[in-house]
Structures are given as structure tokens and as C-alpha cells.
Design a protein around this nucleic acid. Structure first.
Lengths: 117, 117
DNA sequence: CTGTTATTTTAGTTTTTACTAAAATACGGT
DNA sequence: ACCGTATTTTAGTAAAAACTAAAATAACAG
């Protein structure tokens, strides 16, 4: 088991991403479309952290980047995830957690335009 | 499995506490003596969060409070914990994580003495 | 080259987590 | 009542995590 598997699956957001790429690859865009309550950038950052933890692989093709879980990296944790996803009670729990941690819109803070060097 | 089991075991500090109360009860003081790099208050707070998550039980007796893991609340996660504790590589990993997240001493900031009302 | 689509990266904000020191509480002993 | 030990709670700090909006990058199409 990858050492960071435990902290990776502690986050409901990352668990949701893992579920989407568990049984096949998905583009970053498709993943984002499945979680419209966060920005594309936020999804991309979570994907990066999963890749850096060795838990997800990426395959670039054309303009897209296809992500998929490296299931062998999860060891026994993988079974726990699969069990959770199969369990309807867990689905409700996940919805509640996402609702709870939803961030509201933020006050502006425009950055100055950076010149191309 | 309790819904918060996953985030509970993501923290190396809470995993260490759970290990101490896994096979029998321990007083808060005994737990603290096993982790002298944090204050008693910090241990007490972690114990509280574990109790609130339904993962640990407390039994008050005399001036002491005895804590023990509610192993049935962990489901398959319990096996993962036991496996980790039996595994020397995981022990090294834990030591590294605890070392990494150790907080240094802090700059003072005395609070005003609160009068007894 | 220009424009479009897909995605990542940057810089800044907010929230959460883990902690500390000190104060408060609880319990029993004398 | 006062004292000592055990523990919790409070108030504040610091750092990490999660997020946003905007800018930057990349790959392709024309």
C-alpha cells in the first residue's frame, strides 16, 4: 500500500474523484463535469496530488489527459473504497459531507495582469 | 463502519492513540506519558474527537478516565490498522510522519488572567 | 500565425486541523 | 474547607488543506 493512501481517502472530494477513475479512465474535463460545485482548477489540483501520491496515473492523448486509478497501489484500502461505493448509506453520507464542506462565493481580489517575458 | 473512521485513521497522532487503547483501556495520563512530545491538553482534545466520532469509549473511575477503542466501530479499517502496527515498515513510516508534523515551541502570548466569577 | 478547446499553474483567501499555555473543573483525601 | 492529582476546556497561534479567479500553457485546427 502506498503510504499516502490513507490520507488520500480521508477526503470525500478525493474519494469521489477516485470513484470516477476506478473502473476506467476519464479526462480531467469529464471528472470536473461530474462535480460542478467546484472549479476546474480545484479538480486539477486534487488530481495532481493523487498522481504525486502514486495513486492515479495519467495518459495524455490529443488535447486531453486521461486519468485512472492505480488500483494496485491501494492494497486493502481499495476493498474498503469499493465497499463504501456499493453501500447506499455511504452514498448519503458522502452527499452530506460534500454539502457541509461546500464553500460559498468569495469577495473579489483581482491580480495585476502579468506581462509575457 | 463509522463514517469518520477514515479521517480518524488518516492522522498519525490519532493512529498512535488508537494503538494504545486497542487492546485494553488506558487512562488519559498513561496515553499522554506514551507521547511526551505533545501536551496533555493536546492528547485530551484528540481523545475527545475520537469519542465524538464514536470510535473510542470512556469509562470514568475515581479521578481517572479510562479510554478504549470501540473496535466494532472500525469494520475492515481495524484490520488495516492491525496490519500497520504489525508491520515494521509502517512503524518507520509512522515515526517519520510524527517527526515531520512535530510543531516547534511557540512564541509567547500570555492571556490575561481571568477572574473567578 | 490566430483562434479554440483542454488543462495546469499561480497567487491569494478561507477553513480546518493540530497544537500550546493557562485556566477551569472534577474527584477524592485530610 | 483546602490540597493534590487527573483531566478537560478555553482562547489563541500556526500551518496545512481546499478552494477561487485569473493567467499561463499545450495541442490542435484553420
Amino acid at each position: 500500500m502506498e503510504p499516502d493512501a490513507l490520507s488520500a481517502i480521508a477526503s470525500p472530494r478525493r474519494r469521489e474523484i477516485l470513484r470516477l477513475v476506478w473502473n476506467g479512465e476519464q479526462t480531467a474535463g469529464a471528472i470536473h463535469r461530474s462535480m460542478p460545485d467546484v472549479t476546474f482548477g480545484a479538480v486539477s489540483l486534487q488530481l495532481r496530488s493523487l498522481v504525486e501520491a502514486g495513486l492515479v496515473e495519467v495518459r495524455p492523448q490529443r488535447q486531453n489527459r486521461y486519468y485512472r486509478a492505480r488500483r494496485e497501489a491501494f492494497g486493502p484500502v481499495g476493498q474498503i473504497l469499493e465497499r463504501m461505493w456499493a453501500d447506499a448509506l455511504w452514498k448519503l453520507q458522502l452527499a452530506a459531507e460534500l454539502e457541509q464542506t461546500r464553500r460559498g462565493p468569495k469577495p473579489r481580489a483581482r491580480r495585476a495582469k502579468k506581462r509575457k517575458v
